[in-house]
Design a binder for these strands. Structure first.
Lengths: 218, 218
DNA sequence: TAGATTGTTAATCGATTAACAATC
DNA sequence: TAGATTGTTAATCGATTAACAATC
């Protein structure tokens, strides 16, 4: 019990840089497992991932000592531990707002269940889409958002709407008790207490690529 | 002419952290312009963006002195300068590989022309999709990739394919002279000389959100 | 001119890497 | 036991912030 407290105390100060590397570790461990391997050293993992062994050991030790001196890490065990840390078995209820191309792509293309979520509804403001099936569920009109959230209490909303709609929707969703926003709109939410916002700014990523390609041309 | 050389020398060591902030500056400047403003101080911009004024001045000075003491920055001018730095007027020829949900969403949803690119073809390995229209152009079968690239010499490829297909396609594309890859697959490309890879790992982003929401629940 | 605000240097902070004793 | 490799502390490196002289 004391150990539990200790681990959580440590976890409080885990930096975003570390957290953002966790899913990548998880992916590589899954790959190693599929290759039939059972153990890996920080050195071996570092080589495959293009990191330093030091960094891997530092990162993992933010959450606990998962390795064994002289042996390394058990791949399956470490994978499970990272799954546990990430919380991928949570099945957080989530809704998608915006059933345009992007919203539909996300709804059907992403594997929600494997990544901690469970999609419960898709909303759009376009009346004429209402009822059409996406990811096996009928698109709902946005006017039903309040009622749905109060009843089903989804934890997370995925925002696939234009910039203009994002700010107001964000406010509405937070007021409805949403704890996480996966934001695909071009709008930047400021810091919000008690709400995690994860931005996917595809336009920014595209322009970064443009810059980097331009630089290569020089 | 000497100044030209100086600026480029400086630019060589611009860190990724700075580069990744440029599109965001660009976005905020566009917004300010739309609001009818003409000038902004680093302090004013910092407040709106949730950064420090210091950081903004440091960032911009990697590329040149765009401001004026006592005045601040001219919004329109600075926007133009960042557009120039990012190279958004390049219209780099680009192709999309993979016309599934995600590929189709990217093709139709992204504004290529405003962000330095010009979409010239969409490929898929699925024979039955061939000819179907996406973003106003017929989907081509992947077997025509080599011939197309040799003829049209696209600069960039956007990879919307499953993990299994990514590695081989990447090799093929680089051999065909591609200089940039916008990678939506779950595959991690290692460092490649002379090729810029920009990853959009949606699964990783989703799991990071899962972690952060889990933490809030505690 | 006086006030504002930059460009830039110096100080601080945080993240990464190196080193090594502990130990399997 | 000897070799391997961790967990962890210390050193280094890079990025952010603070400070301020220059100057519009």
């Amino acid at each position: 019990m004391f150990r539990e407290v200790e681990i959580n105390k440590v976890r409080d100060n885990v930096s975003m840089s570390v957290i953002r590397r966790l899913p990548r570790y998880y992916r590589f461990l899954g790959e190693l497992k599929r290759q039939g391997l059972t153990r890996i050293s920080s050195k071996g993992l570092a080589e495959r991932m293009g990191l330093t062994a030091s960094q891997i050991r530092q990162d993992l030790n933010c959450f606990g000592g998962f390795g064994q001196q002289g042996y390394g890490y058990n791949i399956e065990l470490l994978e499970q531990q990272i799954a546990e840390i990430l919380g991928v078995t949570n099945r957080f209820g989530c809704i998608i707002i915006g059933a345009g191309n992007l919203g539909r792509a996300i709804s059907t293309h992403m594997n929600f269940e494997d990544r901690g979520f469970h999609l419960t509804a898709v909303f759009d403001k376009n009346e004429s889409l209402a009822g059409r099936l996406v990811a096996g569920m009928p698109i709902r009109h946005i006017s039903g958002l309040d009622e749905f959230c109060r009843r089903e209490k989804p934890k997370v909303a995925m925002l696939c709407v234009p910039q203009e709609a994002a700010e107001a929707l964000g406010k509405q969703l937070v007021a409805l008790g949403i704890k996480g926003i996966w934001n695909f709109s071009h709008y930047d939410f400021g810091e919000m207490d008690g709400v995690a916002v994860e931005n996917v700014h595809l336009g920014d990523s595209m322009m970064t690529l443009c810059y980097r390609v331009s630089e290569l041309e020089k």
